[in-house]
């Protein structure tokens, strides 16, 4: 079966595109599936750590999806969660060490939140839901899509909070001289409220996602 399917799917088939695209909106890991919020909000005070965090998570999701997908037929089901945890923390330690060596300032800003990628539900969620039962290439794409879908929300929140909270973007001054930074924006509370507003707008446009509580 694996052979025939391989021939049917070109490198970027329509199915692959779908894997990449749905996490951006309809199945966005943060605002629809409510996964990985823990680390999402704390690093969004400024744009730069938000971008680095987005990249780190994307790399970890992609790589762990790939590794688990390659190993999927050898993993005994009884210890699969612990195997997944080991693979994820292995990758996160590497990311952490690399950041400390080559992006020292950012790694200082991210502090414990790099380590918390391990318990980021997106990573474990994608491993369980996708990589355990799919071939490596689609798994990588799925990881990439979800990582980017997560990243886009982080970047939006980081953009708004840095622009209004510090009057800068990527540490460059944007707002005119007289602008007094809005202190509320840099507080944790505002990240939550901004996310609530993003969800509001998103669900206003996608009626099928609305909840009837």
């Amino acid at each position: 079966m694996s052979n025939t399917e391989k021939q049917k799917d070109p490198l970027f088939g329509p199915r692959d595109m779908k894997l990449l695209k749905t996490p951006f909106s309809k199945e966005n890991p943060i605002i629809v599936q409510v996964l990985g919020i823990c680390s999402a909000l704390a690093v969004t005070v400024k744009l730069q750590p938000a971008v680095v965090m987005a990249i780190s998570v994307t790399v970890v999701v992609m790589m762990s999806n790939l590794i688990i997908s390659l190993m999927r037929n050898t993993i005994p089901p009884r210890i699969r969660i612990i195997v997944q945890l080991v693979v994820v923390s292995f990758l996160v330690i590497i990311v952490d060490q690399v950041l400390k060596a080559f992006a020292y300032d950012v790694s200082k800003q991210l502090s414990v939140y790099v380590g918390l990628i391990i318990t980021n539900c997106i990573v474990m969620g994608r491993l369980e839901a996708f990589a355990m039962s799919n071939k490596p290439w689609p798994s990588v794409l799925d990881g990439l899509g979800n990582g980017l879908g997560y990243g886009i929300i982080l970047i939006i929140v980081g953009f708004v909070r840095e622009l209004f909270g510090s009057g800068t973007l990527w540490d460059e001054r944007i707002m005119p001289e007289g602008y007094i930074p809005n202190g509320l924006m840099v507080m944790p509370a505002m990240a939550l409220i901004l996310l609530g507003i993003i969800i509001w707008i998103h669900r206003g446009r996608n009626k099928e996602l609305q909840e009837n509580e």
Partner: peptide, 8 residues
């Protein structure tokens, strides 16, 4: 500083 409020 380790973790003072950003912006304040």
């Amino acid at each position: 500083h380790e973790s003072e409020t950003p912006g304040l």
